[in-house]
């Protein structure tokens, strides 16, 4: 067992940074793949790979809960919905149908990208973070849960209210249909009448 502990200690020193570089390379390459792939649905699938490798980065940081949430919500849930939306709206586009953007648009996109990069970089510079030398709790899910429900419960609740608002907004947007006319008790039948089924309307 002592040998095993030694092996583990050895692994933790070197392999962690090594794994970081591998995962970072994979995620950057996949992110390029998202932009460069001409088949838009395929870039959607590559995006799942990007999120998957970011999940690996979280695992390296010993943030198991965040890693799994990343995998479950971003990599699978959200990206899959995006891919499905793409499938429903945009069938296979041939390369000839795709054209490169106008130079002015390219410049604008470049400026936006640089601005975003600078914003994110300036906010995550290492000097803005206080580093703690406290050892990580093995079971940090409990710590996280306790923090979310005690010290940070207000921000947590605000975030959920924001999500709820977004959800209601999405439902309202998706439900942008005419309200039923007075005198029609069943809404679903009115859709049938509108489209083609005249006999149904006459019967009613």
């Amino acid at each position: 067992m002592e040998q095993f502990e030694m092996l583990k200690a050895l692994a933790e020193t070197n392999v962690e940074s090594f794994m970081f570089y591998i995962l970072a390379t994979i995620s950057i390459l996949l992110a390029y793949g998202v932009i460069l792939d001409r088949t838009i649905i395929r870039s959607g699938f590559i995006l799942i790979g990007v999120f998957g490798s970011i999940c690996g980065l979280f695992l390296l940081l010993q943030a198991q809960f965040l890693a799994l949430a990343q995998l479950m919500i971003y990599a699978v849930g959200i990206t899959l919905v995006v891919v499905i939306a793409l499938m429903l709206t945009n069938p296979r586009m041939e390369k000839s149908q795709l054209s490169t953007a106008a130079p002015a648009n390219q410049l604008g996109a470049f400026m936006v990208a640089v601005g975003l990069f600078m914003t994110i970089y300036l906010s995550v510079r290492p000097e803005n973070w206080t580093l703690s030398s406290e050892p990580l709790d093995m079971n940090n899910v409990q710590v996280l849960g306790r923090a979310l429900t005690t010290d940070y419960s207000l921000p947590f609740e605000f975030a959920s209210v924001l999500l709820l608002a977004a959800l209601i907004g999405a439902v309202m947007l998706a439900k942008a249909e005419k309200p039923p006319k007075p005198g029609e008790e069943d809404f679903e039948y009115s859709v049938v009448e509108d489209s083609a089924a005249e006999p149904v309307a006459s019967k009613r």
Binding site: F45, F65, L68, L71, A75, L80, M87
Partner: peptide, 24 residues
């Protein structure tokens, strides 16, 4: 794992990507 059941759930949510991928 300390996150046992959550790990299982996260892993079991991935196969649907394979189904959509294969279907497409």
């Amino acid at each position: 794992l300390p996150t046992g059941i959550f790990f299982i759930l996260a892993a079991s949510s991935v196969p649907v990507v394979g189904i959509v991928m294969g279907g497409w």
